[in-house]
Simulated scan of single mutants.
Amino acid sequence: MPQNQAIAFDALPGAITAYLKAHRDHDTTAQLDLFAADATVVDEGQTHTGTAAIAAWMGDASVAYTYTITPIAAERSGEEDYTVTQHLAGDFPGGTVDLRFRFSLGDDRIRHLVIEP
């Protein structure tokens, strides 16, 4: 498979589409249910490992800012590796940003997620 092959949003695996919906809806419980028990999330240079740490990160992130999310691109870069670029607009410094959400899946769960510009 070519590196970073563009795909349609409806071609994304169920775990990713469910995460994107829960993230857009600010539903941290639904988001957390999609992660493997030993998953990692890297956001703003910090690594959060395991569901307890990910839950704490989600709790902090959900109250820090108010924002809207618009998915703008989806790519597949490996057997279970996907990137979704989302446009965020809100009350955080700068007001708008395009972020890449890099997902690695395993057993229909999110095993690793990196969020970066």
Rank of each mutant, 00 (worst) to 15 (best):
M1C: 10
M1T: 11
N4C: 10
D10E: 13
L12M: 04
L12Q: 00
P13W: 06
G14V: 05
A15T: 06
A15D: 03
I16F: 01
T17F: 06
A18P: 00
Y19K: 02
K21P: 00
H23K: 12
R24S: 09
H26E: 07
T29L: 13
T29W: 00
A30K: 09
L32A: 07
L32M: 10
L34C: 04
L34A: 04
F35A: 06
F35I: 12
D38S: 14
D38P: 06
A39D: 10
T40N: 14
T40H: 12
D43Q: 08
D43K: 08
Q46C: 08
T47S: 10
T49G: 02
G50Y: 12
A52G: 04
A52P: 02
A53P: 13
A56R: 14
D60M: 11
A61N: 04
A61H: 08
A61Q: 04
S62P: 02
T66C: 03
T66P: 01
T68A: 08
I69G: 00
T70D: 05
T70W: 00
P71K: 13
I72C: 01
A73N: 07
E75T: 15
E79G: 06
D81V: 07
T85L: 02
L88W: 11
L88E: 05
L88R: 05
L88F: 15
A89R: 12
G90Y: 09
F92E: 08
F92N: 10
P93N: 09
G94C: 12
G95S: 10
G95C: 09
G95F: 10
G95H: 12
G95T: 11
T96W: 06
T96L: 08
R102K: 13
F103C: 01
S104Q: 14
S104P: 00
L105V: 06
R109C: 03
I110V: 14
I110R: 03
R111T: 10
L113D: 08
L113I: 09
V114E: 14
V114K: 04
I115L: 14
E116T: 15
P117M: 07
P117L: 08
